[in-house]
Every structure is written in structure tokens, then in C-alpha cells.
Design a protein around this nucleic acid. Structure first.
Lengths: 157, 157
DNA sequence: CAATGTAGTTGGTGTCACGTACTAAAACAA
DNA sequence: TTGTTTTAGTACGTGACACCAACTACATTG
């Protein structure tokens, strides 16, 4: 929640640390995305599509949005040539969404600059502590994922 | 950018770790906020106002939004009785925005449940490593803040 | 005082999210 | 095979948000 001092010199509480970090990371990603003409949600859409060709319904679950929101989201992306909608061969109702080359290029660009940003942000940390940080965060994420029955390493088609 | 495996067993890259963590934290906050009828941006607004009474212009800088966006944002919050707009005594053009009691109660509620969420998320980590995590994140944030000339511990009126 | 700058609003446009209502295809029944 | 019921997706209306450009009113500067 981005609070104030409360503690001594330059040491944040866990809540403040994680909250501020998340704002920093999200802000960084958002800025890079908008440099490439993408909104946050469009970027998330393209990111999800990098290793999947989900149906509209699956997209709704992946992005945690109402399926009626997906229609417009994908429509705007399709109108810009970033995404393709192909009728499913196995289900006459369903549609498979996939990246176009342009979409893949866009998301790759954003990912590249975002990765550089993150690297720069943690560059102040010595290598050993960088390792420690990513290991700790990984542990938290893995624990949280398994606690919620989510396979963090699944590549759901 | 929420990538995929690439590495071996349950260890994410720094980028993936921080990106996924930020999505997790933001999602958590967003869910809690919406439980209290608040959008993310409204919550950020109230959060910023907890220890400040900024003008519209200062709000624009604090939230990194166009000043014309602030007008509507504050108007909606004011309409709901969460926020108050008082004409500045020193500058006939300016307006000071402050929390109402209702607004303060709302943001306190959200903060409380959010803090519990964060505590639960890191609860899987032993106490020592929790300390290490928040210390590492703090270091990153402080370094980033000073590198960008921002006083992380300022309570700008 | 006149010229310029600054604070804030207004109006127009576009994105995004939701709920509801709808069509069409599947899946399930009898 | 016929219904009947789910399921996938869209269409439509509404509201929050965000931006830009243009505008008003007050401040500051010369």
C-alpha cells in the first residue's frame, strides 16, 4: 500500500517493500509497453499467447476477465494485426487465438526492453544477493502456486 | 513478462520472478480493493492521500497521470464522499484534496486485509528468509529511488 | 498595467471491464 | 432420433479511466 517511514533508516516493512516493488515493476512494464503502442492488458494478452493458442474462453480464465471482455480485447488486437482468430477444427463454436508475426515481434520487443529494465533495477545488488533474491521470490511464488493448485510451469495449449 | 520453463526444476529467472510476483501482489490488492468497492486507481488515490493533502497538480505527479485525468478521478471519489476538495488559501487557482473520514476508513480497511494477504503469501518462508527477502527488496528500492532522485521516505505535504 | 505562466476544468475520443441477452454448436437425454 | 440443457462466443449498453486540446481564472513577472 506504499506507506511511510514507521521504521528506522531506509528499511521497509514486508508489505511496503512488496507493494512498492510491484508498482515499480508494473510501472516499468507499462512504460515499455506504451512505447510500443501497447496497453498493459494488450501486452498481457500477447504475452500469454507466446506459448499458447487458447480459445476465447481459456483466455478469459488466463487473464481473469469476463469472456465478454475478451471479445473486445481480441477484436482490437486483431484489428491491429497482432492476433489471429481461427475457428476451431474440433469445436464448431470455439475460436483459437494466436499471435501473428507482427504480434510476436511486438511482444518480443517489449520483453527485451523490459528485461533490460529489470536487470538494471537489480543491478545494484551483488551477484550473490541477486541470486538470493530471485531464489526467495521463486520459493514464494511456487509455494503460492501449489497452495492454489496451479502448475506454475505448465504450458497449457 | 510471465514466461515459461527455460530452466530446470521450479526456479524462475529474475525477470519472471519479479514479473510474476508483481502480478500476484497487484492482483491481491486489486481483489481486496474491489471487495471494498474501490478500483485500483481509486485505492492508489486514497493511499496517497493518507499522509498528504496535495493539490490536483501534485496528485497528477504523484499518480503519474495527466492533470485532466485527476479532475475526473477526484470528482468520482468526491461524489462518493471519500475525498474533499478545499480551495487553497494561498493560491486562488489551486485546490487541496484530502481524505474524508469515510475515505480514511475505506483505505484503512483495504490496507488491513491487504497486509494480511501479503503476510500469508510470505508465510511459507521461514522468519529468517522473510527478513532477508524484505531487506533485499528494500535495498533494491532504495537504490532505485536514490538513483532517480526520489526520497523514498519523504512525506511531501 | 500588460504579457506570460500556471492550476484546474471541459469536451471529445478511445480503451477497457462488466452484466445481460442472444445465437449457434455440443453434449446429454429419453 | 428428438428434445433439453450446456457451452462458446458475440452484441449491446453502461461506466470508469486515460489522454489531448482548448479554455477560464488566478499569479507572477517585467
Amino acid at each position: 500500500m506504499a506507506r511511510k517511514p514507521a521504521v528506522v533508516a531506509s528499511e521497509l516493512s514486508m508489505v511496503d517493500a512488496l507493494a512498492q516493488l510491484s508498482f515499480l515493476i508494473q510501472g516499468t512494464l507499462e512504460r515499455r509497453a506504451s512505447e510500443h503502442g501497447l496497453s498493459m492488458i494488450q501486452t498481457r494478452l500477447l504475452g500469454v499467447l507466446r506459448d499458447r493458442n487458447p480459445t476465447m474462453n481459456e483466455l478469459a480464465r488466463l487473464l481473469d476477465l469476463d469472456k465478454s471482455s475478451i471479445t473486445g480485447l481480441v477484436a482490437r488486437a486483431e484489428r491491429r494485426g497482432l492476433v489471429r482468430r481461427v475457428p476451431s477444427r474440433t469445436d464448431g463454436r470455439a475460436v483459437q487465438v494466436s499471435l501473428t508475426d507482427a504480434g510476436r515481434a511486438h511482444v518480443a520487443d517489449v520483453a527485451t526492453s523490459f528485461e533490460a529494465d529489470v536487470a538494471a533495477i537489480v543491478a545494484t545488488l551483488p551477484s550473490v544477493e541477486r541470486k538470493a533474491l530471485s531464489a526467495l521470490v521463486s520459493r514464494v511464488l511456487v509455494a503460492h502456486a501449489t497452495a492454489h493448485g496451479i502448475d506454475l510451469f505448465a504450458t497449457t495449449s
